[in-house]
């Protein structure tokens, strides 16, 4: 607590929850694939491919466990530009949060897209992942996506 004499006391107050979450058999495969620099989705009984995968078809509640490869490229279906990235954001310069529908997937997944400038972002643009040098089995193994043909 700190303030001048007589003023109201004020102090930083930090709450931290160090959660560890069990991934289960389906997300466990998804993260294991990321560690190998691949994307996998789950195919439901109705033939839809969900990425990120879920253990159940959200429309029917039926179990889904058939993993299929998707990506690595995909299409931006919608996006929002972040002019002032915050401390925990994946990039420390302006970038886009985007929903990316990987090739072969029927759903889109949230990730960052690095185009440098907002004017280079476009719905429908093709993007590819930029992998980190070290992968651990986390969504952050993908540093971000970038326009196809960038590197």
């Amino acid at each position: 607590m700190a303030s001048g004499d007589g003023g109201l006391l004020s102090a930083s107050h930090i709450v931290e929850y160090p959660y560890r979450r069990s991934t289960g058999p389906v997300m466990g495969r998804f993260f294991a694939a990321l560690r190998d620099r691949r994307f996998e989705g789950v195919k439901t009984a109705r033939g839809r491919v969900l990425v990120p995968p879920t253990e159940y078809d959200p429309q029917t509640g039926e179990a889904a466990d058939e993993m299929v490869p998707v990506g690595p490229g995909g299409v931006v279906t919608t996006w929002a530009w972040v002019s002032h990235p915050r401390a925990k954001h994946p990039l420390n310069h302006p970038f886009a949060w985007a929903l990316i529908q990987l090739d072969g997937a029927d759903t889109a997944m949230l990730h960052a897209v690095d185009t440098g400038v907002e004017s280079a972002m476009q719905t429908g643009m093709r993007v590819t992942p930029r992998w980190r040098a070290q992968t651990v089995g986390s969504i952050n193994d993908v540093a971000c996506f970038e326009p196809e043909g960038t590197s």
């Binding site: 004020s10 930083s12 930090i14 931290e16 929850y17 979450r21 495969r29 993260f31 294991a32 925990k88």
Partner: peptide
């Protein structure tokens, strides 16, 4: 490939400025 990821850490951090 067959080695599943069993768990991930998802730390949550909330930074407040508390005025008494």
């Amino acid at each position: 490939e067959s080695e599943l990821v069993q768990s991930i850490t998802t730390p949550l951090r909330l930074e407040y400025q508390y005025t008494a």
